[in-house]
């Protein structure tokens, strides 16, 4: 085969693409570099020290010993996993019902998804007072419930799209063959939407993992998740840049891995299923 000559246009194409990648990935890369820098390198103010430095684990050491990092990591995991399970228990049947029978004639689906627009700050005050009265402030259950409310409409809408992809004819054939309703769901519909369920769950977990407003207002100490802990490094009198970078490096690692694994579905999830990506 004759080797194709590289044109000017191709060079331009790759220059732009590489600049875009540097702009997008630079800050993420920089966080991982800073996490391994000593305080004197961080505050040195010279560019060479930003790139050429002796790696150290002192930031991680301080993060693990001086701050309740593992406790808040554990809180984040518990809250995101349990709230996602609850969301799925509620959203799966509802999404199936919307997709198969158009329950409520489209209006109900519209109401469901509009609730995603309900401003968090509007809900925050009434729930703050209610939770204070019934003792749910700074508890895992309190935040789990709020994250469930926050994700349930999104999950229903996304799953609705996946259920719509399952042809009705399959189910009708099974009905005629004498399968019961539950059998049809278990043996035919469920396996077909399993990827959709996985993707929706992943999104719900990420939204819960990232959620800040409720976490910040409703937790102080016991149930404090990671986003709130990390944000506290910058609120203090002496800004703990190194510790913050170490915390951020660990906190975003799972998100980056998940984003890489499900890259084909990110656009679909972010557009509520409207764009297949």
């Amino acid at each position: 085969m004759i080797k194709k000559k590289i044109t000017n246009e191709e060079i331009g194409f790759w220059i732009v693409t590489i600049i875009v990648l540097i702009v997008v990935l630079g800050p993420l890369l920089w966080i991982y570099l800073t996490a391994f820098k000593s305080a004197s390198d961080i505050f040195s103010g010279s560019l060479s020290k930003q790139i050429l430095f002796t790696p150290t684990l002192e930031n991680f050491k301080r993060l693990f010993t001086e701050y309740p990092f593992f406790a808040s990591l554990f809180n984040t995991i518990i809250i995101s996993v349990v709230s996602t399970i609850l969301v799925m228990v509620i959203s799966l049947p509802a999404a199936y019902s919307f997709a198969r029978w158009d329950t409520g004639g489209g209006h109900l689906l519209f109401v469901t998804i509009s609730t995603r627009m309900f401003p968090g700050v509007v809900a925050a005050l009434p729930f703050f007072l209610l939770f204070r009265n019934i003792g749910l402030l700074d508890t895992h259950i309190g935040l789990i419930l709020l994250h469930m409310y926050f994700n349930v409409s999104f999950a229903t809408f996304l799953l609705y799209g996946f259920f719509k992809d399952v042809p009705v004819e399959l189910e009708q054939a099974a009905l005629i063959d004498g399968y019961g309703r539950i059998d049809i769901l278990r043996r035919i519909v469920f396996p077909l939407v399993l990827p959709g369920i996985a993707i929706t769950s992943a999104f719900c977990m990420i939204w819960s993992w990232n959620e800040f407003l409720f976490a910040f207002l409703f937790t102080r100490d016991i149930a404090r998740p990671m986003t709130v802990l990390i944000s506290s490094f910058w609120g203090s009198i002496e800004v703990q840049y190194g510790t913050m970078a170490a915390g951020v490096a660990i906190a975003i690692l799972p998100i980056l891995i998940v984003a890489w694994v499900m890259q084909r579905y990110i656009i679909r999830g972010l557009t509520f299923g409207a764009v297949k990506g």
Binding site: L28, W30, W209, F212, S231
Partner: peptide, 15 residues
């Protein structure tokens, strides 16, 4: 290019 899209906006703003 998709990597930062799912990272918490709060964390990115701190960075």
């Amino acid at each position: 290019v998709l990597l930062p899209l799912l990272v918490a906006p709060l964390i990115l703003s701190l960075v």
